[in-house]
Every structure is written in C-alpha cells, then in structure tokens.
C-alpha cells in the first residue's frame, strides 16, 4: 500500500525553541555558512515568529515551523522543473528534490508559495575536521543547487532496509521519524501516514482546529497546522490575515 506521509504541527505547543531547525540541519548535513543571512541561509525547517499585530499587553506571538508542505496536487515545484529534478514519490507522497539532477535555475523557488526551497549560494563548508561529524546517510549538496525538506528520506531508506533485512514488506512506523519530529521537545510536530485513516495524525488533520496554509491554492499540502486560537487559524489565508492585522 502506498503511503502519504504528512504532518500535523500543533502551533499551541510550539515554543519556538528552534530544536527542529538545529536537528534538521545536523541530520541533513546542512552547512552553516558565515555569510548566510535570513535571506540566503539554508533552513529546510524554519521556525517563523508571527505577531498578532497588536501592541502592548494585547500583543501575542505564535511560532510557525515552515517546511516543504509536500503538495499532493498541482505540486507547484514539480511541474516547473525543466529537467525532472523534482518529483512526487507516488509510494510515499514525499516531494523529492534530486540535487544531482538540479541545474540551479531556481524556477521552483519562484514557484513555491511557502518559500520552503533554498538555494546553495555558497560551496558547502564546515570548519576543518567537522566533516567527521557529518551524517554518513546524507550526501552533502554542492553549490548552485536547490534543496528542501525531503522528510528525512535517509531515515525512510534506513527503515526500509531494516524491514527488508527482517523479511518484511512494510516498515515499522516507529523506525521512520523525521529529525524535526524527533527533536521537538513539546511534541508539537507529529508525523504520520495520511493515507491510513487510523493513524492519529490523519485523525488530527480532520480536527476543526486543523488547517493548512494557502489551502485555496488547491495544491493539497500534506503539512497541517493546528491551533485553538482563532487569530492563528486566520493566518492560513492571505486575505483574512490582513483583516486581522488591520482590524
């Protein structure tokens, strides 16, 4: 049976600590480059701080982890890539980026409404010796290619190998947990198979508090968010949020 991996991120639980960002970068051998800024850095997982726009004691903040939403339909980045470096893996629903195939034209980055794609503006570099601390399961990307979240595909691969070695067809769900999910100290990020109606994540995604960003674009993103606060849910669509900020 093919899976549709997805997430539900409970924004009420997110404290904005950034453990997911660090764990993601370490797991995926994402370099930290001295000259990188918040506009040129590589943050496949990025926690964004969003204010309700009020001042004084009425001010509230929410932290929103933004990653590739793994759009299921009309996947904006897949159709634009001129050389098939991006594809939706039909077996997992994961939007895969193949850095070895990527030309670095960045068309996919302009196509992504979530700004969840990042370009390697520099050669990857670490302080001398740090290469010994890199994750052997993930290849280091080269300069001039686009990268993004692939739901820690190396971990899926390892889980599949483990299942195959044990003579099983299906992986044990406990063996495949992306780094950000594992790292979240409050359990705000939950990961599961949306194709499985019994998966708690699937059930949570149907909750009235669950929503997706820019769902009206019709791309069927597989990363859901959740909040009890109405102003947070109102951030989902562009038009309504301006009402929040101006009203």
């Amino acid at each position: 049976m093919s899976a549709r991996y997805g997430m539900v991120i409970d924004l009420d639980r997110c404290t904005g600590c950034g453990a997911c960002m660090m764990a993601c970068a370490a797991e995926n051998n994402v370099p930290a480059l001295p000259k990188a800024t918040n506009r040129t850095g590589l943050t496949p997982m990025l926690v964004r701080k969003v204010s309700n726009g009020r001042n004084g004691v009425a001010q509230r903040e929410v932290f929103i982890p933004i990653l590739c939403m793994h759009c299921e339909q009309h996947t904006p980045c897949v159709s634009v890539c001129p050389q098939q470096a991006v594809e939706v893996d039909r077996a997992t629903g994961i939007v895969m980026q193949m850095p070895q195939r990527c030309l670095g034209c960045r068309y996919c980055m302009t196509a992504c409404p979530y700004h969840a794609r990042y370009f390697n503006w520099w050669d990857p570099a670490w302080p001398a010796g740090t290469e010994k601390s890199l994750n052997p399961g993930v290849a280091v990307r080269m300069r001039g290619v686009v990268e993004k979240c692939n739901m820690c595909h190396a971990r899926l691969h390892a889980a599949q190998e483990k299942a195959a070695a044990a003579g099983k067809r299906e992986i044990d769900p406990a063996d495949y947990v992306p780094a950000c999910v594992e790292a979240c100290p409050t359990g705000a990020i939950r990961f599961g198979n949306l194709a499985d109606p019994n998966d708690p994540v699937t059930q949570e995604s149907h909750s009235p508090e669950a929503f997706r960003f820019l769902a009206r674009l019709g791309t069927e993103p597989k990363v859901y968010y959740k909040s009890k606060e109405a102003w947070v849910r109102a951030l989902a669509e562009a038009a309504s949020s301006t009402e929040v900020q101006h009203g």
Partner: peptide, 26 residues
C-alpha cells in the same frame, strides 16, 4: 551565468520535463 550549475545545462535536453514552460523556453 544565472544558473547555479552551468555545466549541467544540457540536462534539460537529456531529461526534459515536458510539462515545464522552462523546458519549452530552453
């Protein structure tokens, strides 16, 4: 110059994505 990996420019001809406008342009 604008592409990150000019050496791979020919990939578009070798692995063309026929759905992409950029393939058509190229």
């Amino acid at each position: 110059i604008d592409v990150g990996q000019p050496l791979r420019a020919w990939f578009t001809f070798w692995h063309p994505n026929t759905h992409s406008m950029l393939t058509e342009v190229t």
